[in-house]
Structure formats: structure tokens, C-alpha cells
Design a protein around this nucleic acid. Structure first.
Lengths: 202, 202
DNA sequence: TCAGGAATTGAATAGGTATTCGATTCAAGT
DNA sequence: ACTTGAATCGAATACCTATTCAATTCCTGA
């Protein structure tokens, strides 16, 4: 029955980050509103002040914000006309993977909770926006591969399959990666970027 | 309030296959016992005759049976001493992917519901058996890569990362593959096998 | 043909958890 | 200081679905 003093203020970002964390640990359905609330020292009811539409709205926001965050780096590289396809590919793979290792809870949500979104959430505006953004993200990778093939720099792979192959491998990193493992996020990202470049050698 | 005539008999396999299907469509938590039961023309209560421990037991069985099914082909190839690493790799990749496309609901379960198992199920015997089998499965891939490197046939990649890269890409096929798409399971499997072989060229 | 077990049904039962909402307190502007 | 709205709480609501179980019917082996 109280408002929090200013120095303990809780905002949207805090909640989303907490939610992503809880989702990673317990999955969307295993995550209680009370769990998420506790993570930011609130009670379940309070979350509805920030997200009137409740748990689904939180999921939606986690995914939309998360995807955008992961997309940002990649978009920049693709839009740089000075870069050749091979260098572009190396960099988007590297940045994508590094981003996922730096935000494991987002990475896990993008893999596992996208399915929840498809299953549980109505076809709202926000949902469609997310799915579209997801398609565009895939397109970035596809375009780089295509352009490399056109320029004769890459082996003429099936672009759709190769793109899915890359993205699947990348997403999986978010599933198995743990901080403090044998290799750093940077090392993993570099190793995988080289791998896919070799796979594209003519 | 009756037993089924013999020609409508329902067995364990039917139920597990139905369950895997429902899990794929709605996810474990979205799948009601009644949904699974309906799929085989039973009611929810009847499932407890076949699986006394209920939903969790069904999940456990779907995963254990499913993994075994997917593993079988691969194991054979790895144990064939007449095959060279490159040919072995081509075949295990091909068979693994083909198996996943032929059993999409199992494929989806192995990706998404393994997480459910980790989150929701107690550390029972069956659970551990599954996780061990999963590790062994990964080991098959790892061994082939290792032996290829030792024999100087493969580029000296980081074996752990390369293996995870392959498995991530494979698993992802189970997420996006749809019957009747542009390419058949065979075509996809072949394309991806070639891709990973190129990535291993010295 | 009969006995006994197998399989199934259709209510209860039992919990769990998202959500709602009136009451309360704090912060910020005036 | 006072006013007003933002933020929070916590208890009550509401619903949903896994699970249990007694009753019933069908099979199968002897």
C-alpha cells in the first residue's frame, strides 16, 4: 500500500529485462507474474500499472525490444555500401552471434518464446510487427549471400537454405552459451564467422 | 463408460505420436490432456491408464522415444569402420536432417520441449537417461569431425563449436521445415551436408 | 462359456495463477 | 504546504486444467 521512493523507481526497461531473465530460467508459462515482479521488488499487481494488458503484453514487449536490439548492429553493416559481401558476411555473423552471447536472455526468448507468441497471442498489430521485423532480419542475411553469389565471390549455394542454416546455428548459440565457458563470445563469433565463410568459398 | 472394441484399440505408440503432434502445434503447456486424448478418440482420464504419471510421463516418453528414433540412423553410420570421415560426415548430416523432416513433431519436441523437461520435470532416472542420450548423440558428430581433422582431411576447426554449429542448424530445420515446401527433405539434407563439408575443406 | 483383467468414461476434486480493484503513499508542480 | 496523479500493494476473483476414481464394458485365456 505504498509508492516507492524515487531512488527505487522501477521502469519499463527494468521490468522487461527482468521478465526476459525469468523467461529464460523458467520459460514463459513457468514464469509467474509474481516471479517477474519479485525480480524488480514489486508485487504481481503492480506490473499491471506498467503493462495493462498483462503477461502477454510483457512477452510482446520483450520480443519486440529484444529483436530490435539484436537487429541494430546487423542493419548497419548491411547498409554500408563500402563493404564487400565477404566482409559483410563475416561482420554480420560476428555481430549477430556476439549480440546473442551478450544478451542470453533475449537470445533464449527469441528462440523459445517466439513459439509462445505464435501459440498464445492473438494476431494483434504488435504481433504482426514482430513477425515482419523477424522476416526483415532474415532478409539481411539473405541479401548478403545473394550479392556475394552474384558477384561470383561465393559458392552458388541455395540462398534460402544457407540463410536458415546460418540463423539456426546462430540461434542455437543462445541456447548453449554460458558466460565463463571455455571460449568467449568473441571467440565463438569469430570461429563461426570463419566457418560460414569457408562454406561459401568457391 | 466402456471399453473400446478391438479394432479401435489405442496403444502407447498412438498416444505418443498424438502427443508429439499436439505439442508441436500448441507446445507442452498449451496442450491439454483432453487435446491429446481427443486426437486418439479418448478422454483425458483414459490417458492415465496408459501413463499413470500423467502429462510429464508422456512428455518424457515422447522425448526418449523420439530421440532414439532420430539417433538410430546416425549411430549406424558412425559405427561403420569402412567409411572415411568425409563420407561419414556427409551421411550423418544427411540422415539426421532427413529424419527430422520426416518426423517434424519429434523434431519440434526435441528442440522446444527439452527445455520444458529441464524446467518442469524432476531429476528422475528417465530424465537423466534422456539427457545422457542427448550428449552421446552430440558425441557422434564430434567424433567424426575429430577423426577427420586427425587424418588431415578436415580443416582444423574448433570441434566443440563446429559440432554445435551443425546441430543448431539441423535442429532449426525442424522449426521451419514444412511438407510441400519448395525443397524436399532429401534436397535440404543434401544441400546442408554439402555446405558443412565445404566448411571443413582444408 | 466364464472369470478376471484391461480399457474407458465422466464426473468430481484440487490447485494454481493471471487479473482486477479499492485503498494507500509518494513525488512533483504550483 | 497543497493538490493531483503516478505507483504500489494485497486481498478477492475467476478460470482453467491436471488428476483421481468408482462404475461400466469389452477381451482373452482357460
Amino acid at each position: 500500500m505504498a509508492r516507492k521512493p524515487a531512488d527505487q523507481a522501477v521502469n519499463r526497461i527494468d521490468i522487461l529485462s527482468a521478465a526476459a531473465d525469468v523467461f529464460r530460467r523458467k520459460g514463459y508459462h513457468g514464469a509467474k507474474m509474481a516471479d517477474i515482479a519479485a525480480e524488480v521488488k514489486l508485487t504481481a499487481g503492480s506490473l499491471y500499472h506498467h503493462f495493462p494488458d498483462g503477461k502477454q503484453q510483457i512477452l510482446m514487449a520483450v520480443l519486440n525490444d529484444g529483436l530490435e536490439q539484436i537487429t541494430d548492429n546487423v542493419r548497419e553493416i548491411v547498409n554500408d555500401p563500402a563493404l564487400q559481401p565477404d566482409e559483410q558476411l563475416r561482420r554480420i555473423v560476428y555481430e549477430h552471434i556476439l549480440g546473442l552471447t551478450e544478451h542470453v536472455s533475449i537470445a533464449a526468448a527469441l528462440v523459445f518464446e517466439t513459439r509462445t507468441l505464435l501459440n498464445d497471442l492473438d494476431n494483434t498489430d504488435a504481433r504482426q510487427r514482430y513477425l515482419d521485423a523477424r522476416d526483415r532480419f532474415e532478409l539481411y542475411f539473405r541479401q548478403v549471400v545473394e550479392s556475394g553469389i552474384e558477384k561470383g565471390m561465393f559458392h552458388p549455394v541455395d540462398v534460402a537454405i544457407f540463410t536458415k542454416t546460418m540463423l539456426g546455428a546462430h540461434n542455437w548459440v543462445g541456447v548453449w552459451y554460458r558466460d565463463g565457458g571455455r571460449l568467449s563470445g568473441e571467440e565463438i563469433a569469430e570461429e563461426m564467422a570463419e566457418t560460414f565463410l569457408r562454406a561459401l568459398r568457391r
